[in-house]
């Protein structure tokens, strides 16, 4: 195991301020929030902002999966939070690389009508949120928390992943997503949002 402990992460105050940003983002889908820079060193390819989201919500009472499978990433979260690894079908939290096509998304847990809250929470790593580079996916969101419509472009999100996420939504069943980019910009897309998207031509 190559993962290292992160003593610099403050479990009281770092989690509190990250949680408040997540709560605000989820209550207002489409609103961009900037996550605080943390003095931590996650394994290769994992950005520290997404690691911060995991540290905020995961513990030994929760289950977790990484897509595509990555032992370093999984061990890093297990060591620092005590979270239990699970299959993508069963995991309560899933961290995934948004740019790679991941057919497993079509099978993630979306809860039951008696317990819709059991639907997974996805942390989706993307390259950039906001801006309109060629190849970006332009999202148009409507629903609770949004005054009329919210529009935002996401770079580094495979359209098939987005389609798979939307295919899991059958309100009140569904999954709730937090997109995080390399600069720490966060965007939330709860199951209550209706989503339309188009690709910005390259």
């Amino acid at each position: 195991m190559n993962a290292c402990l992160e003593p610099a992460f403050d479990k009281v105050f770092d989690t509190q301020r990250i949680y408040r940003l997540m709560l605000d983002a989820l209550a207002r889908p489409g609103k961009l929030r900037t996550l605080p820079g943390l003095d931590i060193c996650p394994p290769n390819g994992l950005n520290r902002y997404a690691a911060g989201l995991g540290f905020t919500l995961l513990d030994s009472e929760t289950t977790f999966a990484v897509l595509p499978e990555d032992d370093d990433w999984r061990d890093y979260f297990s060591l620092n939070t005590g979270v239990k690894p699970a299959t993508p079908e069963a995991a309560e939290f899933i961290l995934l690389r948004g740019g790679e096509y991941l057919p497993e998304i079509a099978r993630v847990n979306r809860g039951t009508l008696l317990s819709p809250e059991e639907g997974s929470t996805l942390f989706v790593l993307v390259d950039a949120i906001g801006g309109t580079q060629p190849g970006a996916v332009k999202l148009t969101l409507a629903g609770p928390g949004i005054k009329e419509l919210a529009q935002v472009a996401v770079v580094g999100l495979h359209p098939l992943n987005l389609a798979a996420i939307c295919s899991r939504q059958e309100y009140p069943l569904g999954v709730d997503c937090f997109f995080v980019d390399a600069e720490g910009i966060m965007l939330a897309m709860p199951r209550s949002a209706t989503v339309q998207w188009e690709e910005v031509p390259g």
Binding site: T56, L57, E117, D176, R191
Partner: peptide
């Protein structure tokens, strides 16, 4: 912190399913 984290996870789901 464990108790807070559980409440936070549940609150996020509550917001996602108004």
């Amino acid at each position: 912190e464990n108790t807070k984290r559980e409440i936070r996870r549940k609150t996020l789901k509550a917001v996602a399913i108004p």
